[in-house]
């Protein structure tokens, strides 16, 4: 027996996710996530083993060449995803939670609390991000964990500022007032009525921020304040490559890795923003109502 044609359904993908940029973004990001997971099981040279002829250009045995210590650049580039992606995601999650908490409190309570929190945020904004990150990272000492801490301390104001303005506009909504009249205290009001309604712009912000956080994290490693040698990390690999400019493959491949992953996250962030755009969401609501 054949099913009627109307019963055959393909999974519905929203049109914004079918745009070329979205597809490119998803491809790049999924490539690096899959690599991150399966790279130890691939038939690759040990990223730390100094077994090969130093500085040999890309060839059949070493498609990305070898570096000054005779390590395989392909293996180091692929393993580099493990030094970057988890930490960048952790970093964004930490700054998202920290910034949301602080920003929501500032926006909801207003007054003196708001002033104090936002002036501290202004203080952080007053310095160029990478310079301030360098100062904090240098004070904490090199290491990828310290780099994450340093960047988290510097990137929370971005989130705080955005969520503060979202909470400011949400807190006078009638449903928030109705919740207060039904006896909701400030915390349950924030949790029940406000945060669920500001979550989607925060998600977009986090996704767009992921790309720039990877850049900053790699930047710190490039300057020697992030990952410690001999760890395979893109930023420090580019840093090593710059010392050996005639051997282009040292910096080019890890640089390409940073480029693809950052571009991928930005494309996904843009697409997410378009798919959660309040105007299109309203249009859907009105059709349903």
């Amino acid at each position: 027996m054949t099913a009627p044609a109307t019963l055959i359904r393909r999974p519905r993908i929203a049109p914004v996710w079918r745009r070329p940029l979205a597809i490119v973004g998803i491809l790049f990001v999924s490539f690096w996530f899959i690599t991150m997971i399966i790279v130890p099981f691939l038939p690759l040279a040990d990223p730390l083993a100094q077994d090969f002829t130093p500085l040999s250009p890309p060839s059949g045995t070493h498609p990305f060449g070898t570096d000054i210590l005779g390590r395989d650049v392909l293996s180091r580039t692929l393993f580099g995803s493990r030094a970057t992606l988890p930490f960048a995601i952790l970093l964004v999650i930490i700054s998202l939670i920290l910034g949301s908490l602080v920003g929501a409190i500032a926006g909801y309570f207003g007054g003196v609390i708001d002033e104090i929190i936002m002036r501290i945020a202004d203080l952080v904004f007053a310095f160029p991000t990478i310079v301030l990150a360098m100062v904090v990272a240098a004070a904490l000492g090199p290491g990828i964990t310290n780099a994450v801490i340093a960047l988290a301390l510097i990137s929370w104001p971005n989130y705080a500022r955005v969520i503060r303005s979202l909470v400011l506009s949400a807190r006078n909504q009638e449903y928030v007032v109705a919740g207060r009249l039904l006896g909701a205290g400030p915390l349950s009001s924030l949790r029940r009525d406000i945060l669920p309604n500001v979550a989607s712009p925060m998600l977009v912000l986090a996704m767009l921020d992921l790309g720039s956080q990877i850049l900053l994290l790699s930047g710190l490693s490039f300057l020697g304040l992030g990952a410690v040698p001999p760890a395979a990390e893109w930023g420090s690999m580019v840093g090593d490559g710059v010392q050996q400019f005639s051997n282009w493959w040292l910096a080019a491949f890890p640089g390409l890795a940073i480029l693809t992953v950052v571009v991928g996250f930005n494309f996904i962030g843009d697409t997410l923003r378009d798919s959660l755009d309040p105007r299109s969401a309203n249009a859907v609501t009105q059709v349903n109502a």
């Binding site: 109705a178 919740g179 039904l182 909701a184 400030p186 029940r192 009525d193 109502a289």
Partner: peptide, 28 residues
């Protein structure tokens, strides 16, 4: 009504708002 929880005796006053499109939390 400040930032504190509304005192229990005042919960005996409840209001129905003008705009039914704004007075219910869309996410719950």
């Amino acid at each position: 009504l400040g930032h504190r929880r509304r005192p229990a005796r005042l919960l005996r006053i409840q209001m129905v708002f003008q705009n039914p499109y704004a007075s219910l939390n869309p996410r719950r």
